[in-house]
C-alpha cells in the first residue's frame, strides 16, 4: 500500500529526537576534524593523499553507527514497537520505512561530510594534495557518503536482529576499533571483505586487495542488506 505516510512518520520520529540529530552532526564534525588533523601531519612512505583527506571517516563512522543503532533501538524500549506496529501493521512495510528514514539522511549527511572533508583536507594539505585527479577526489567524497549511509544501515539491521541497541553497539564498536585495526592491517584474504575494510577502499587512491572502490562498496552494501534482511526476518517472525 502507500509507503509515503509510514516514511513520513518514521522521518518525523528521527527529526524530533535531539540525540539522533546530534549524532548526524557528530558524523560531519568527527570526520572533518580528524581528517584535518591527519592532513596536518601527513607522511610515511605509503602516503595516500586521498585517504589522508578522508581519514576522519574512521571516527565519523562511529557516529553513523550510533545514529543507525539509536534510531532503531528506541523501538525496542517501553512498548514503542507495539505502538508503531499498531499504526503500520505490515511489518516488512514498516521496517522498510524505518530503514529508508535511517538511510536517506545518513546518505545526505555522508555526502556533506565527504565534500566538507575534501575541501578542508585539501586546504590543509596544500601542495601535498597534488596528484589525484578530480574524478578520484569526487569518487572519494561520494564513496564517503555511500559508505557512511551503509554503515548506519548495517547498524540499524543488526539492532533489529538483536532487538537491542546496547547489544548492537557492543558488537560493532569493538569490532571497528579493535578487530578491524588488528586484522585489517593484514591485507589480503578474508580481511578485505569485512564491511568496513571493503567499503573504505573507495577512500583510497591506491589499493592492492582484490576489491576496487565500487566493488568494495558493493561488498559493504551486501553486509548492510544481509543485516537488514535478518532484522526484518526477526521482526516479522517474533511477537512484538
Amino acid at each position: 500500500m502507500s509507503f509515503a505516510p509510514a516514511l513520513r512518520s518514521e522521518w518525523m520520529k528521527i527529526r524530533t529526537v535531539r540525540s539522533l540529530v546530534g549524532s548526524l552532526c557528530a558524523v560531519v564534525l568527527a570526520t572533518v576534524v580528524f581528517s584535518a588533523l591527519a592532513a596536518l601531519d601527513p607522511g610515511g612512505s605509503d602516503f595516500d593523499p586521498l585517504f589522508t583527506v578522508f581519514f576522519g571517516v574512521v571516527f565519523g563512522q562511529i557516529a553513523a553507527i550510533a545514529f543507525g543503532t539509536t534510531a532503531v533501538a528506541a523501538e525496542f524500549r517501553g512498548g514503542a514497537l507495539r505502538l508503531s506496529l499498531s499504526a503500520v501493521p505490515r511489518r516488512g512495510h514498516w521496517f522498510a520505512a524505518k530503514a529508508t528514514a535511517v538511510g536517506l539522511p545518513a546518505f545526505a549527511v555522508g555526502l556533506v561530510t565527504g565534500f566538507a572533508s575534501l575541501s578542508v583536507g585539501r586546504a590543509v594539505l596544500g601542495s601535498k594534495a597534488d596528484g589525484p585527479g578530480w574524478t578520484e577526489w569526487i569518487r572519494g567524497a561520494v564513496g564517503c557518503g555511500v559508505y557512511l549511509a551503509l554503515m548506519a544501515l548495517f547498524a540499524a539491521g543488526l539492532t533489529a536482529l538483536l532487538r537491542s541497541g546496547v547489544a548492537a553497539l557492543g558488537i560493532l564498536i569493538p569490532f571497528l576499533l579493535i578487530v578491524s585495526f588488528v586484522v585489517g592491517n593484514v591485507s589480503g584474504g578474508v580481511a578485505d571483505f569485512l564491511p568496513d575494510k571493503a567499503g573504505q577502499v573507495a577512500l583510497h587512491r591506491a589499493w592492492d586487495g582484490s576489491l576496487g572502490p565500487w566493488t568494495g562498496l558493493a561488498v559493504t552494501a551486501l553486509w548492510a542488506a544481509a543485516a537488514l534482511l535478518a532484522g526484518a526476518w526477526r521482526l516479522c517472525r517474533r511477537d512484538a
Partner: peptide, 9 residues
C-alpha cells in the same frame, strides 16, 4: 497498551 510507548526525548 503501554504508557511508556512514547520516547522520552
Amino acid at each position: 497498551l503501554d504508557a511508556g510507548a512514547a520516547h522520552g526525548s
